[in-house]
Write a protein that binds this DNA or RNA. Structure first.
Lengths: 94, 94
DNA sequence: ATTATTGTTATCATATATGATAACATGATA
DNA sequence: TATCATGTTATCATATATGATAACAATAAT
């Protein structure tokens, strides 16, 4: 074991975790990005989750769940949300 | 009935259908748009559905199904596809 | 202190996305 | 013709997204 007092295996483990974290982050970035925009657009218009839910045709709890980022939303659902916020959703590969 | 020989109710019906069609189209536009980009990116790289499937970690039949536009894909799936095509998916509300 | 407003969390039921496999279609090529 | 490469379609199993309802938390307003 080196003087620094930390085993390489542990460092590697940490780096691996960091790699995993990065990969995980990359994977979740599109989701968090669009959610941020949704929350931003909604609050900017002083719209409550309940009002947005009404326009979308669902319940406020479901809007809260969406905004929490705890699951993987479908494209159609995102599009419905966007239109209920007076916007269009645009998906671009680049 | 007017001289033109077509009942208003029928015209209305047609217009309604047109409205429905427009609404339906608006609703499906984001899906078809992103699918077009996927197919474009894949074929541009001379990549087969089988190769894309391998990179994504699924089967070629599932890629075919996605590209057929017959269902409502999730954001994560689109992101995985994009990355396997060497691209990033970008979702914008505007 | 109470009540209203807004958002959160948990839970159940149902619909559907996704993975996997197989069979088939089509066109190119030997 | 036979084979190979590529894409399509059907089907089943499983995981999960979504709708719906209820209970709760936090904050503001009265």
């Amino acid at each position: 074991m080196s003087k620094a007092g930390i085993k390489f295996s542990n460092v590697k483990e940490l780096l691996m975790k960091d790699e995993d974290f990065k990969k995980e982050y990359e994977k979740l970035k599109p989701r968090y990005d669009v959610i941020s925009q949704i929350i931003e657009a909604r609050t900017r218009q002083n719209m409550t989750q309940e009002e947005l839910a009404f326009r979308v045709g669902t319940q406020k709890s479901n809007i809260s769940r969406l905004e929490s980022g705890t699951y993987n939303p479908s494209l159609d659902f995102l599009a419905k949300i966007a239109r209920s916020l007076g916007k269009d959703v645009q998906v671009i590969l680049k």
